[in-house]
């Protein structure tokens, strides 16, 4: 296993008090696997990613365990983190224009990762930069290396960001909405490129997106988040064919389909509760069409609802109390050792 998050919770200081943004997030990513994290904006997808990279605001409280290649990195010092960021784990951000330094040539920005993590000399670094630019599918690499970000198109910039991230062959690549700011045609190219790079380099990828189309395109497994909690996780096909959690169903209903007659798209009524006013029971209770009495009172546990398919919903509660826990663990384990 490449990455494991064990009951990770994150609190941020807002107006003088700590507010829980992530609540007991547990997930796993294997080598060569792409795991999608989906959910509405504000559900904690990006914060999960930033917690792994530990690029958090200053007054953040992070609890739980984060294991990267079996190393507990959540307790790493600043210095130690700097060593693995960009080397073992790398991240790509949403807007490639604002994410690249406007005053440095793109070649220099790719080279910086190499300066920070390798012993290559200037010649070798230059060669590697050209190599990387070719790898991410940019022609005329030596010319582009001396260009500034504003001289390139959106798709090219995102390719540069990918080259920056790939410079040291990281084992984990986190992509936070990597295609959201791009044209649709360019989106497909970028996703293809990432699929290709994953296969070549045996990376694990976390793909954060609100776009289920992107998920369908590249992910092997999907995690659905709602209001700072994981509500469902399953294999990609399983999730699309057989969604269990009412929230996931709602999300899938809101995608337009070609076969559909011109009916109204499904939408989920209501709003996400704010982090400082989380309800006692299920966080989706207020908006859920199949809500029951118990949902208001108690937080639903993760239930095994199919093969390697988990959902946090009272609808699928297994009847026997004891078996409940053990089968749940079995389900988790099955997912872990996938």
């Amino acid at each position: 296993m490449l990455l494991e998050l064990k009951n990770v919770s994150l609190s941020l200081k807002r107006d003088g008090k700590y507010v829980k943004i992530l609540d007991e997030i547990s997930l796993q990513v294997n080598k060569g696997e792409t795991v999608g994290i989906v959910g509405e904006s504000g559900c904690g997808k990006s914060m999960t990613a930033l917690s792994i990279m530990r690029l958090l605001p200053e007054k953040a409280k992070l609890e739980g365990g984060i294991l990267l290649e079996k190393e507990e990195i959540s307790s790493y010092s600043k210095r130690k983190l700097e060593k693995i960021r960009g080397d073992k784990m790398a991240m790509i951000f949403q807007d490639p224009l604002t994410s690249l330094n406007p005053l440095h040539t793109v070649g220099r920005q790719i080279e910086e990762t190499l300066i920070l993590h390798t012993d290559l000399n200037k010649e070798q670094r230059k060669k590697r930069v050209i190599e990387l630019l070719n790898e991410v599918g940019l022609p005329r690499a030596d010319e582009i290396a001396s260009d500034y970000p504003h001289q390139l198109s959106g798709g090219m910039r995102q390719r540069i960001m990918i080259a920056v991230a790939m410079a040291c062959n990281p084992s984990l690549l986190i992509c936070d909405e990597p295609t959201t700011a791009l044209d649709v045609t360019v989106q497909a190219q970028i996703l293809d490129l990432m699929n290709h790079l994953k296969d070549v380099n045996e990376m694990g990828i976390i793909m954060i997106t609100h776009d289920l189309g992107v998920v369908a395109e590249v992910c092997d497994r999907v995690i659905v988040m709602y209001a700072g909690k994981i509500v469902e996780q399953a294999e990609i096909k399983e999730l699309f064919i057989n969604p269990k959690h009412p929230y996931t169903k709602g999300l899938l209903d809101s995608i337009p389909k070609l076969a559909m007659k011109k009916t109204k798209l499904g939408s989920i009524p209501g709003m996400v509760p704010s982090p400082d006013k989380m309800p006692k029971g299920c966080r989706f209770y207020e908006r859920c069409s199949s809500a029951m009495e118990i949902c208001r009172e108690k937080t639903p546990p993760m239930n095994l609802v199919g093969e390697e398919h988990l959902a946090a919903c009272w609808l699928f509660e297994e009847k026997e109390g004891e078996a409940n826990a053990s089968s749940r663990n079995k389900g988790l384990e099955a997912t872990l050792h996938h």
Partner: peptide
């Protein structure tokens, strides 16, 4: 507050490097 500062940290840059190498010139 810029995104590219976050990128510089994500690359593994130290605070000093990010401050003087990226932020100050901008």
């Amino acid at each position: 507050r810029s995104d590219y500062i976050r990128t510089a940290f994500a690359k593994g840059g130290s605070e000093r490097r990010v401050l003087y190498g990226h932020a100050l010139r901008n």
